[in-house]
Amino acid sequence: MTEEKLEKPTIEDFSREITRMLGGETITYCYQCGTCASSCPVAKTTDRYNPRQIIRMALLGQRYEVLNGDSIWLCASCYNCQERCPQKVEIADVIYALRNMAIREGNIPALYAEFANGLMSEGRLAPISKFLEKKRSDYGLPPLKPTGVEALKKIFSATGFDKIFFKKGEQP
């Protein structure tokens, strides 16, 4: 039997990995001033989310915790933090980079998986039920145009989006 050894992530490995991601380049500039945390509307409503802390954990190489936790999925992408960060850390973009890394490893919250599956099958993030379509005509809205899902599928296959396995799971 071959013995499998897990590579122990070092501090450098993970932050380097992030800086190589699109949007993750600026993470190492962070000097933990906390401007992002006190600017963040999500952090104001829940202590499950704190952008400074995510960056801190990432810089300390806490790969598993960052990519498997639900924290990174809570960012509202308002870019308040990014506007204000004195070190020009592109925080919201770093969060996107982390999400992309998490997705590659199959850590996708159910809601996002549903969006992705909807896009791939229907060409829409959310399925349009018969009920909804009827409601539209009740309100005098025109029927929805077809989505051109074929064109989308080409994009998905060219970008490799369709190779990602979007499992159904629990919502964060």
Partner: peptide, 27 residues
């Protein structure tokens, strides 16, 4: 913690400094 914003309350003419106390991890 470096404050995110300074707000002004006109009713009391006081200022409010929004800051994260990082050591407490509290806003």
């Amino acid at each position: 913690g470096r404050p995110a914003e300074i707000l002004h309350d006109p009713a009391t003419n006081t200022l409010i400094v929004e800051v994260e106390d990082e050591l407490l991890r509290r806003l």
